[in-house]
Amino acid sequence: MIETRDITLKYSGSKGIFDLNFNVAKGETFGYIGPKNAGKTSTIRVLMGLSHPGKGSATINGLNCFRKAAAIQKIVGYVPEETAFFDGMRVKEYLNFITHMRGAVGSKKTQLRDSLIERFELETRGRIEYLSKDMKQKLAIVTAFMHDPEILVLDEPTNGLDPLMQSRFLDLIIEEKRRGKTILMATQMFENVERTCDRVGILKEGHLVEQDDIIQVKSAEIKSYFVRFEAHPNLEQLKKFGFGFKQFSDKDYEIYCQGDRIDVLVKVLSHEKVLVFNSNTQTLEEIFHKYYSQEEETA
């Protein structure tokens, strides 16, 4: 449904995006991940027709992203990385304006809109410029979802949201996914894609370095867990099954475990009395590091 072919857009210096090829099938949720300045937003701006590639082409639903941007916007909901709203507009006024610009005023539409407002506890009184950053992000989300679009293009959608709202947002994504929506989500936060995406593409300095099944990415990733035992644990057992660990005290450990061996770890730990078991959320950089070092090894 979303397809890019060799899109290249160079900026000054070595920045830009280079020969990107990926496609998102109908009904699929694709996580587009990469650190800051990797080119996620540039790619999305090409998809949304705000910019056009120097080389290659991007299509959504078979329509050229730049030339047919208006037709594409009919079926797309877009959350920009950071939305700049019009000066001096009130929240309701803005939502009405966008609804009118979409050429639709129906009771069904406002129903969906009102439910989204309620869900995200969006403050609808007052002027947009006085809203806090997270309220503005909520407004951007409501704007993107209120016309019940078939395709969702999300650029750092949870940016600035508090954990509760992030979680509500991910719930919404999962619901939309169940309803058969096609979703492209660019993010730096691995947790976002972990819970929602079928497949991920990893972007590094404008190049797509990996496109993989989410399970595969997860199994390749090494997670660490902070564990506190009631008594000194049987370290031999951990060593025997090949788990690395770091000891902080007699009872506190950080244990490393590859994603596809979590069940083994659980079995090993089941012989001990565990008081605390915390997973250390891995930053994307750490996951990247793994991919990058792999690349170097093969090179």
């Binding site: 916007q73 700049a84 019009f86 966008i98």
Partner: peptide, 20 residues
């Protein structure tokens, strides 16, 4: 002004062509 402050993006995220 809208292009500079970025709010023009809101207009282009609606099904209206740039020409229109």
């Amino acid at each position: 002004k809208w292009v500079y402050d970025g709010s023009f993006g809101c207009l282009l995220a609606t099904p209206n062509s740039r020409i229109k």
